[in-house]
């Protein structure tokens, strides 16, 4: 192993020993979706770049693994805003208090959530079921949610972003992005020419079928074969083809997965129930810079008669990261 002194910080975990991986994907709460959308909107508009956000996240030191992924994002965004003078603490606290007061309502039995309509900032406002996920414990949303709401409100007040930008991003992550990768793989299973084009130049092939990915990064497609098993990780943060696959699952962002998959891929794959024969080469892709990866799984057996549409229902996200294979 390399000497510890070369480690850049708490985020530089590749090669560390760590715990077994919790392979279940914990669904995101509404505040996490909101925090994610804000981060993506802010970086795609180049108000604050992704590398700045990463730099400030890495600088959190001991706090890095003491708080969660979205908490880290929120805190680094806030620290940058203060450092750059986008707002000061007085304004931040004032807006945050206002956001908290909007949640400070008497506890009553909840009516049918879909029927809740009330007025926010003079406009009719409708709630989704997901808005109440955090309330199941009776504790209300975490304090970081109010931080995130306050940061977003200041950006909106300054005309840098709009509420619609955030709403659209949440919608895309929920309903658009996760389906793109599945559609692309189903097409590759169904159409050999498209498969060849995808492996040759994935971003172009995907664009040629009318899907324009909202990303600066390039996409590389690696096909699983009889002799090579591909698997993807980002040891330094959580680089992932989000506009093609949606949000990375919680295990992909976990310390265990990021530490271990680079130096013991067979053991990690076994924890996902994937046993790779000794005769096969395992190729790990550390997605550490400007490329993003799509793993093309083999077409399942006995599917010769299925349409592209039917095939798309057989595509699972885990295949496209390389942790599982279709039967």
């Amino acid at each position: 192993m390399n000497e510890n002194y070369l480690k850049m910080g708490p985020h530089d975990v590749g090669g560390e020993d760590s715990l077994p991986i919790d392979t279940t994907d914990n669904n995101m709460t509404h505040w996490e979706k909101y925090a994610n959308a804000l981060r993506i909107v802010v970086s795609s508009k180049r108000i604050i770049t992704l590398d700045e956000l990463r730099y400030h996240t890495e600088a959190l030191g001991d706090q890095y693994f003491e708080i969660g992924y979205f908490e880290r994002n929120c805190l680094s965004l806030h620290n940058i805003c203060i450092q750059k003078g986008i707002y000061d603490m007085e304004l931040f606290q004032k807006i945050k208090s206002k956001k908290i007061s909007e949640f400070d309502v008497p506890i009553v039995d909840l009516p049918d959530v879909a029927s809740i309509n009330h007025i926010h900032d003079g406009k009719p406002h409708k709630h989704n079921v997901s808005d109440f996920q955090e309330d199941e414990s009776g504790d209300g949303p975490p304090d970081y949610y109010f931080d995130t709401l306050a940061i977003a409100q200041i950006f909106i007040d300054q005309g840098l972003i709009t509420n619609d930008d955030i709403t659209l991003k949440i919608e895309q992550f929920d309903n658009i992005f996760p389906n793109r990768g599945k559609a692309v793989v189903a097409k590759a299973w169904h159409n050999n020419l498209f498969k060849e084009a995808l492996i040759k130049d994935a971003k172009k092939a995907i664009s040629d079928i009318g899907i324009e990915l909202e990303t600066f990064a390039d996409i590389i497609c690696m096909p699983q074969t009889d002799t090579v098993h591909h698997i993807v990780v980002c040891t330094l943060c959580s680089c992932y083809p989000r506009t093609l696959l949606g949000m990375p699952p919680s295990w992909y962002k976990s310390r265990s997965y990021r530490s271990r998959v680079v130096h013991e891929p067979r053991e990690v794959l076994a924890e996902f129930g994937t046993i790779v024969p000794e005769s096969k080469e395992i190729k790990v892709h550390d997605s550490n810079a400007d490329m993003r990866y799509l793993i093309l799984p083999p077409r399942p057996s006995n599917t010769e008669d299925l349409s592209e549409q039917e095939l798309s229902k057989l595509v699972e996200r885990d295949y496209l990261v390389g942790v599982r294979l279709p039967k």
Binding site: H263, P265, E278, E281, I282, K283, V284, H285, D286
Partner: peptide
């Protein structure tokens, strides 16, 4: 992988690929 890790437990043929500036 054999060149990257001391005591790598996998196969000789296993590889790892990264992007380096």
């Amino acid at each position: 992988q054999m060149d990257v890790w001391d005591n790598y437990s996998g196969k000789d043929s296993d590889t790892i690929e990264l992007e380096i500036y």
